[in-house]
Design a binder for these strands. Sequence first.
DNA 1: CCCACTTTGTGCGTACTTTCACAAGGGCGT
DNA 2: ACGCCCTTGTGAAAGTACGCACAAAGTGGG
Lengths: 250, 250
Amino acid sequence: MSAQLQNAPTIAAQEHTPVTPRTSQPRERGIPEATVARLPVYLRALQALHESGTPTVSSEDLAEIAGVNSAKLRKDLSHLGSYGTRGVGYEVEYLIYQISRELGLTQDWSVAIVGIGNLGRALANYGGFGTRGFRIAALLDADVSIVGDKVAGLAVGHIDTLEDVVEKENVSIGVIATPASAAQGVCDRFIEAGVTSVLNFAPMVLNVPPGVDVRKVDLSIELQILAFHEQRKSDGHVESGRIGQTGNAR
Amino acid sequence: MSAQLQNAPTIAAQEHTPVTPRTSQPRERGIPEATVARLPVYLRALQALHESGTPTVSSEDLAEIAGVNSAKLRKDLSHLGSYGTRGVGYEVEYLIYQISRELGLTQDWSVAIVGIGNLGRALANYGGFGTRGFRIAALLDADVSIVGDKVAGLAVGHIDTLEDVVEKENVSIGVIATPASAAQGVCDRFIEAGVTSVLNFAPMVLNVPPGVDVRKVDLSIELQILAFHEQRKSDGHVESGRIGQTGNAR
DNA sequence: CCCACTTTGTGCGTACTTTCACAAGGGCGT
DNA sequence: ACGCCCTTGTGAAAGTACGCACAAAGTGGG
């Protein structure tokens, strides 16, 4: 056997908590976290299909592209509603819309990136943002020698303008790409300014109050997980690995 | 209510498969994937404690720092063996060694990064590598205009030397930081050259044969997951969120 | 209008995770 | 030495996730 982890979870939700109260409506808002994490993967696959002119797709085919089990994919989609047609499959364009809506991508989210080093620049230049419901509202850094520089068409602002930017641009998601030592401070300022969702690239656990979502992406952690599996392979174990691909799930 | 996801899983293992045959030895090699994903987080927390001169730490305190439930932390560590002392806690230095060993960080792993754009540079300059058992053996790119440039002290090589580098430097982990369109091709070459662990930053699912581990980190997927939760908050739901922090787990 | 074929949506069993709660174990003061 | 207090390690319960297998539901041909 073997393994394949594609999409590994080094990013992880910090915790959970029931969510979805006890209201119990028709189809109560209760999409499993694991499903939410895979929806973006399906969305990407669907967009590729759409661009290639494919009108409909079966769960089998879409699952193949997304790298998951087809039953899992159907169950995931069933949480959104019954958008498929038996005997036919799913209409690509319609499904793209439904998933986008569910993920909240039909509205625009303003993002502010703090820490414009190589990683911050990579993020700013990452094409996937603007095209998927996100708008980079500002790039901020503490280093005055780069403040004013143009990155991805935007002038880098000074970190001290964070609060102003958050308010004026209605920033709802803060991205931290600073060194670990500055992360908590930036995070606190984001929260103080009203931001309730933070994407943290700094290698440290952020301390945040209830109500704030933090997702963390840690490059070295991913490598460490790979090292673990790599070690196992040479340990003389007849292990199998993994295949399939979760989508950011954890 | 509230939430905090810290460490979210946008990175996800593609699949699994039993692993750990039917041998059943004393304490068979069977560390849960969820645990493996958290070990790097504990390791980082422990290293911080070590640097600040703390000799021992209780599961309660370490869990607090790492952002997880203390019972979970104890259970995770129990998979490695009994390295704690009741009534006292864990000896920081000893635990660092044990986790490092388990993760395979006591040996050096050679890493080759392909795609030296902003992201590739960010990765190359990321301090967490060298200090944690990883050695960047080569930086490769297809763009001849940057081949030869010095990045993080290394000269960028041409992608055509990939096979040579993998063999000479004994590369065991390949990092793909290229555009999506080039990712599969690079991945195939890595595999053909003998690499069995790949860390993919390109926004696409890689197709790999059994025996190869692929972990994927997708920036836009993380943002989409945050958008989903952010949307829920304003949906008028009295949701709770999450707290705690998984560590790259799936 | 009916039948054969295809593909969805899901009930169900299994496996994995998380968390609680507590017994077992070790240190320290007296 | 004894006993109290603290913290680990873990059994058991609860919650989640996964994937199989199949009934339900459309499609299209005859």
